[in-house]
Structure formats: C-alpha cells, structure tokens
C-alpha cells in the first residue's frame, strides 16, 4: 500500500458516499445515470468475486464489501425507492455498446484464462468506460447539480491517483500491470473535459453548465 493508492481509495469511497447522500438527502436521483450505476455494480461484482476465497488484507476485504454494498444500495435508491425521480428520458446511453466490446476485449487481452482472471480483466475494461452513460447524460441535459459534479470529480480523481500509484509501484517494486494501467489512463482521459469544466466553473462557485 502507498499513499497514492490510499488517497485514491479514499476519493473513491468519498465519491460513492457523496452520491448516496445526494440521492438520500434530496430524495431524488435527478441527473444521475442509473445505467452508469448498473455498470459500476457489475464492475465490483465481477472484480470482487475472489472476496470469499482470496484474502489480501482486512482493509482490502472491508473496502470490497463497502463498494459492493454501496453500489447495490445506490441501484436500489435509483430503481426502487426514488424511481419516480429517475430521469430515464436523458439516461439513454446504449450500455450494450460498452458491455460487448469489454467482453470481447477481455477474451483477447488478458493475463490468464481462468474464470476469476477473465472476470477481473472484464471489470477493468468495463470500469474504464462505466462513466460514459453519466457523462453522456450530463452532456444531454447540459448541466449537473453541484453535488453531482463533486461526485464526478472524486470518482475521476480516484483513478488518476491510481496512475500515480502505478508509477510509484513501478519504480519502488518494479511492479506493473499493463492492463490496469492502460485502462486506467483511458478512464482518466474520459474525465479530462469534465475536470476542465469543474476546475474552471464549480471551483469558482459557478453552476456546472456545459457551454451551450
């Protein structure tokens, strides 16, 4: 463990909690893409299948449980409890166009063809693009609630910090996982446009609105 990865995990946790609080406090999931949340739940489910038979550390197991529980709780809030506030008209990204390429790619490029490893690889590729429905929805509505922009910033920062963690691990442990690094870089690049808007607008107290 290193400070970059710890900060990354904390950002990730903050993002998930901010989203849950936003929906719970405002009793509304307006502006939130349920499809992205479905993809995230799928990412954690396929990545943490080893939760019950591979023990890395208490921290690792606890965080996995938190990520799994919170992602399904978010799905429950969006699709059950506050279903009436779900903006399905704007949440129209075709997630099969993400799922199918990720399945194919995880069969073509993977470290190992064991079921657990294939699921892990699939989850890495899927996580890289899981935010697209949300970014697509923000681009369609042209704006996002400030709290939602904080959620997106924290979520983007988490994987950006993981890139720093991989650089650190490369130089200190000569550890490198090409699949995770390439997917992580793509994932972070997808946030670039959002990061720019967030820093130039939200941090200056303005609303998060895309230039018309």
């Amino acid at each position: 463990m290193n400070i970059f990865r710890l900060l990354g995990d904390i950002c990730h946790l903050v993002a998930i909690i901010v989203l849950l609080l936003k929906i719970w406090k405002t009793r509304s999931c307006a502006g939130i893409s349920g499809k992205s949340q479905i993809l995230f739940a799928l990412v954690y489910t396929t990545r943490y299948v080893d939760l019950f038979f591979t023990y890395v550390s208490l921290y690792n197991s606890v965080m996995k449980v938190i990520f799994l529980a919170s992602s399904y709780a978010t799905l429950y809030l969006i699709y059950v409890k506050f279903k009436a506030t779900y903006d399905f008209n704007h949440d129209t990204f075709r997630i099969e166009f993400l799922l199918i390429p990720c399945v194919i790619l995880s069969l073509l490029i993977t470290h190992d063809y064991s079921p657990v490893e294939l699921l892990w690889t699939f989850s890495i590729y899927l996580e890289a693009v899981a935010i697209l429905p949300q970014l697509f929805m923000v681009s369609k509505t042209g704006e996002a609630e400030t709290i939602t922009s904080h959620y997106l910033f924290a979520l983007g920062a988490y994987r950006a910090l993981y890139i720093v963690n991989w650089i650190y691990r490369y130089y200190t442990e000569s550890f490198i996982d090409g699949i995770a690094v390439v997917a992580g870089i793509i994932q972070t690049i997808l946030y670039a446009d959002f990061f720019y808007l967030y820093i130039t607008k939200v941090l200056k107290g303005k609303d998060f609105k895309l230039p018309a």
């Binding site: 990865r5 990730h12 080893d50 550390s57 990520f67 064991s114 892990w120 963690n165 996982d177």
Partner: peptide, 10 residues
C-alpha cells in the same frame, strides 16, 4: 506464478 493473477489492488 505470474503475480498479475494475484490482484492486491481494489
């Protein structure tokens, strides 16, 4: 064993 198949990151 290829250490990549033992993922210690979240």
């Amino acid at each position: 064993e290829d250490d990549n198949t033992h993922h210690d990151e979240l």
